[in-house]
Design a protein around this nucleic acid. Structure first.
Lengths: 340, 340
DNA sequence: CTGAAAGCGCTTACAG
DNA sequence: CTGAAAGCGCTTACAG
């Protein structure tokens, strides 16, 4: 199959490249190209399987029909689901998505944004490291279309779609309190992510409402890279004096999985001795023993809404107001918190 | 930040675009551009944050520095991991990866391949629907660099890196047999995927070696789309006359998860009444009760090797011999098969 | 040492 | 109804 170009069609049909291009872009009627010519072009293109070079087209029209997705890690189920959804939706709109992972490194995030811009993406969807306000501001200044997902910069106005982390975490903690748990531990990641901070605040708030002063020793902050190594110590400390927790809130799915492994190793019965609850989940959390009660995020909605907003931005001539969406989480009660 | 182009640098520095381009592409020395000029260009580029338009560059050089990844579904943990690995490695080589999901539809696969070619990807990594030999052959004929992962076409020579599904499944079944299980069911997807076929054959082979004739009623083939709806019936049939299985092999991770849910619903004790083993796994399979014995695939290796092969193909002037890699799986024994 | 010019494969005002 | 020409932003033989 020889590759066929515009000029080949033009030559073989004895017409100009202009005419061919117009017809192929459905601008034949508007430009009053005779039905006859149009048909000839269409037929030729079909039989010779003509396919335009998107690089050339993009360069010429100044648009690439590509959007970029920047996330911490495509192999995290949460982001993979968002990516999957975005890709499906975007394809329907004629857009391709290119993705890249930051591995939580702000430097990489900065590079990736640049790389994507170089590739002339028309818009960006970013789950930021939240340590890169600089570049986000830059994008804003250039009026470049982008929407933040999962994580945004509270001090820096922009389009975003996130989840109410504070509330989700508060509700989770209250669930434990309602079940008469008093000593509630909180296992999370080292500060740096506003998302995690909000979850911590939600936990604190729930306790304070009941006049329980949340002791700092009840909060364990692990390193994103080394959480598996640090988990045993964290769990051990939570289990012993002065903590001796009767329940633990884990601030994200992989911490829950890791924490549960340790609880098992210490032969702690869940939920009898220690109840656990997870912010966010993995696909087998309902099969785990006990099935894990979790705060669920509306992943698909996040993808849908983010793309909607982005497309609006891309297609808007003038700058339009920011869309700020904060979605609710859902508490799925299984068995890891027991009953009263 | 105004965007700056080659011509801007040339104008401001009073030199030609040629010189600027040469310097920026590290061809300054080779072309004997004076150190002085080079430095000026570099400085200017740096301070003005010059970034080349990749569309233009790609068009001009005839290469896009992009590779395409076509998979059934990016939100499947298996493919997500491959994607993650590929992306990381590719980035180091200066390549961007664009991905798209086929949702197991051969028609979509065909479209996606075309779309990627239009975008001038330099190579393709494909986990095919295995119902699209047509397009694969086309790629071969055009001598276009591509490597098949996870699934290949046995009758159609090409580069590929897959796993020994037959052996993996045989080993899994033998594990059950060694534990004195006699009535072994097999839950898989409807025919169409050679991968699944191999796993079925591996299961059959293990039984036949012990002169057990594998009854067809022991094999349940579910629909990829509706497996959740079909699972209850399948499990029910396996549990009752004439099957009354004492163990089940599930041919892929999500079937295992779904099947286990049903076994629970029927209050079947695993592994006492029915042992289960899973081909492929999910991240929480070690936390499930009982922790699930599984055949593990070397995902990272698949990604690494596939990319290696692809890059070799891309960089080869002449056509080179096909690389056909069949990797071994690993049996991770946990508790879902019990002991003797 | 450096530059003018052609070319990559398209699109699109503009002219007739 | 249709075409010649310029242009998108680069790269790269070629000439001097």
């Amino acid at each position: 199959m020889k590759k066929v170009f515009l000029k080949d069609i033009a030559r073989d049909l004895n017409i100009s490249k202009t005419t061919v291009s117009l017809v192929l872009n459905n601008k034949g009627d508007k430009n009053k190209i005779s039905k006859d010519t149009q048909q000839k072009v269409l037929d030729y293109a079909k039989t010779h399987n003509y396919m335009p070079n998107q690089l050339a087209r993009g360069l010429s029209r100044g648009k690439s029909e590509t959007i970029g997705l920047i996330i911490p890690n495509i192999s995290d189920t949460f982001y993979a689901k968002i990516a999957s959804r975005l890709e499906e939706k975007a394809k329907d709109l004629g857009y391709t998505v290119i993705f890249s992972s930051t591995r939580e490194e702000p430097k990489k995030e900065a590079e990736l944004i640049q790389a994507m811009l170089n590739r002339q993406v028309e818009g960006l969807i970013i789950a930021s490291t939240q340590k890169n306000q600089q570049d986000i501001k830059e994008l804003k200044k250039d009026n470049f279309p982008f929407v933040l997902v999962d994580r945004h910069y509270p001090e820096c106005e922009s389009d975003y779609v996130v989840v109410d982390n504070f509330k989700g975490s508060r509700v989770a903690t209250e669930h434990l309190l309602n079940l008469k748990r008093k000593k509630i531990g909180f296992v999370t990641l080292k500060p740096g992510l506003e998302v995690m901070n909000q979850r911590l605040l939600g936990y604190r708030h729930a306790l304070q409402k009941l006049n329980i002063e949340p002791s700092d020793t009840l909060v364990k902050e692990l390193d994103t890279e080394n959480y598996k190594e640090e988990m045993p110590q964290a769990i051990k400390e939570l289990l012993s004096f002065p903590n001796a927790v009767d329940s633990i809130v884990f601030s994200t799915h992989f911490l829950t999985a890791s924490g549960l492994r340790e609880l098992r190793r210490f032969s702690i019965r869940v939920p009898q001795e220690v109840a656990i609850i997870s912010f966010d989940q993995m696909s087998a959390f309902d099969l785990v023993e006990p099935p894990i009660t979790a705060v669920i995020q509306p992943v698909l909605d996040i993808g849908d809404i983010a793309l909607d907003i982005l497309m609006k931005k891309i297609n808007a001539k003038d700058s339009i107001a920011y869309s700020k969406r904060v979605l609710d989480t859902e508490l799925v009660i299984r068995k890891s918190c027991g009953t009263i």
